[in-house]
Simulated assay, not measured.
Amino acid sequence: MTFQVETGDRSDVVDVTGRVEETVPTDVDRGVCTVFVPHTTAGVVVNENESRLRADIERGLERLAPRGDDYAHDAIDDNADAHLRAMVLGESVSIPVTDGSLDLGTWQSVLFVECDGPRTRSVEVAVVQY
């Protein structure tokens, strides 16, 4: 299943937990849900969906790979920092499924992290029962 995420800024953290949860079939007793972002300048993580932490994620990524830091790739499309940030974040997460629901911890959410927006992005979700 694929759904779209609209981002509003160059860096943006969007909680997609509910949208991912909607894709999990209710008849899956035990399984795994993989969330995949097919983009080289965006990522997905599991972390707490708290406004100050989302801002901290954005600031931390900026410190890790500052924009305009004389990257060779910037000669092509001026977004090397976004590629580097996305590489650190990763393009997928896997979450256990129990009784048709994501088996996340109390404070865990699935967060889509935009590094080169604003854009319309795709998120792919696959659930396998075992």
Rank of each mutant, 00 (worst) to 15 (best):
R119M: 06
S94M: 05
A65M: 07
G100P: 02
G18K: 15
V37D: 06
L53W: 05
V128R: 10
V5L: 11
S109N: 14
T106K: 09
D29T: 13
V16T: 01
N47D: 13
V128G: 04
S11T: 11
F36P: 14
R10W: 03
A75V: 08
G60T: 08
V13G: 06
D56C: 12
P66Y: 13
V20Y: 11
C115S: 11
L89M: 14
V127D: 07
G8E: 10
G68D: 02
V20T: 10
V110K: 08
V35G: 09
L84A: 13
Q129V: 12
G117N: 03
E91S: 15
L53F: 12
D81L: 00
D81G: 03
V37K: 03
V113W: 03
T34W: 00
D77I: 06
G43M: 04
G90F: 04
V45E: 03
R30Y: 01
C115A: 10
A126F: 10
G100R: 00
R59W: 00
D70N: 14
E124H: 09
C33R: 08
H83I: 04
V5W: 06
V28R: 09
V24I: 10
N79S: 13
R59P: 09
A42Q: 04
I57L: 15
R85V: 01
G60E: 12
H73P: 12
A126S: 15
D77V: 08
D99N: 15
V20N: 09
Q108C: 05
L102P: 05
R59M: 05
W107T: 03
S92P: 01
A55R: 14
D74M: 10
Q108H: 11
W107Y: 09
R30L: 06
T40S: 12
E124G: 14
V20D: 00
G105I: 07
T120N: 11
D56T: 09
G43N: 03
R63H: 12
V128N: 15
E114W: 01
A65Q: 04
M1A: 15
P96V: 01
A80K: 00
V128F: 08
A65L: 05
Y130W: 14
D69P: 01
E6M: 02
Q4F: 07
E22P: 00
S92C: 12
V20M: 05
L64A: 13
G18Q: 15
T106Q: 06
S92F: 07
R30N: 12
I57W: 01
R10L: 13
D12R: 03
R19H: 14
R19F: 11
A126Y: 13
D29F: 03
R52F: 07
V20S: 03
T41I: 02
N49A: 15
E91M: 11
A42I: 02
A42L: 04
I57G: 04
G43K: 00
G18V: 05
A55V: 00
Y71A: 08
A80F: 06
D15L: 02
L84D: 15
L111N: 00
H73W: 03
T34Y: 06
P38G: 02
D74V: 01
D69M: 08
V45Y: 00
R67W: 15
I57E: 02
G60K: 11
T7H: 07
Q4Y: 12
